[in-house]
Computed example of a mutant assay.
Amino acid sequence: MPRVVFTPQLRRFVEIPEVETSSAQTVREALEAAFVVNPRLRGYVLDDQGHLRANVVVFIDGRRMRELKLLNDPLRPDSTLHVLQALSGG
């Protein structure tokens, strides 16, 4: 069953669940399962159009997600999504 893991950086702002979902077949479906557990998390991950925020990166089984708007990258039953805040420096 796909698993969604959030990095600790988001803990400063919102409680971070680690979610396993038996029905998720896409990234969006897996994220929606996490948002059910904590709805406030949605605003930190998605923008007003439901697209991945520019400062968020998602890896599926160690590979960076390709589709940032529809979030329809497919998942395997044993996939792990890592949701990270992208860091910028200066």
Rank of each mutant, 00 (worst) to 15 (best):
M1V: 09
M1C: 04
M1T: 12
P2W: 07
P2V: 02
R3I: 13
V4L: 06
V4S: 01
V5F: 11
F6N: 01
F6I: 08
F6D: 02
T7A: 09
P8L: 12
P8K: 14
P8Y: 05
P8S: 14
Q9G: 08
Q9E: 13
Q9V: 14
L10R: 04
L10K: 02
L10G: 05
L10S: 04
R11H: 08
R11L: 13
R11T: 09
R12Q: 13
F13C: 04
F13W: 12
F13T: 06
V14G: 06
V14I: 15
I16G: 01
P17R: 08
E18S: 12
E18L: 07
E18W: 03
E18P: 00
E18R: 13
V19N: 00
V19W: 01
E20F: 06
E20L: 08
E20H: 06
E20C: 04
T21E: 11
S22H: 12
S22I: 06
S23Q: 12
S23K: 11
S23N: 07
S23A: 13
A24K: 00
A24W: 00
A24E: 01
T26P: 00
V27W: 00
V27N: 00
R28M: 11
E29Q: 15
A30G: 05
A33W: 08
A33G: 03
A33F: 06
A33S: 15
A34S: 15
A34G: 05
A34I: 03
F35G: 01
F35N: 08
F35C: 04
F35S: 04
V36F: 04
V37M: 06
N38D: 10
P39T: 11
R40N: 12
R40C: 01
R40D: 14
R40H: 10
R40V: 03
L41A: 07
L41C: 08
L41R: 05
L41S: 05
R42A: 14
G43T: 06
G43F: 11
G43K: 09
Y44S: 05
Y44P: 05
V45G: 03
V45W: 11
V45C: 10
L46F: 09
L46S: 10
D47Q: 11
H51C: 13
H51A: 14
L52R: 06
R53C: 10
A54P: 01
A54I: 04
N55F: 15
V56P: 02
V56A: 07
V57E: 12
V57Y: 01
V57P: 00
V57R: 14
V57S: 09
V57C: 04
V57T: 14
F59K: 12
F59Y: 14
D61E: 08
D61T: 02
G62K: 05
G62Q: 06
G62D: 03
G62E: 03
R63H: 13
R63N: 08
R64W: 01
R64Y: 02
R64I: 11
R64S: 07
M65Y: 06
M65K: 05
M65I: 05
R66E: 15
R66W: 07
R66L: 14
E67R: 12
E67A: 10
E67F: 06
L68V: 13
L68G: 03
L68D: 07
L68W: 04
K69T: 13
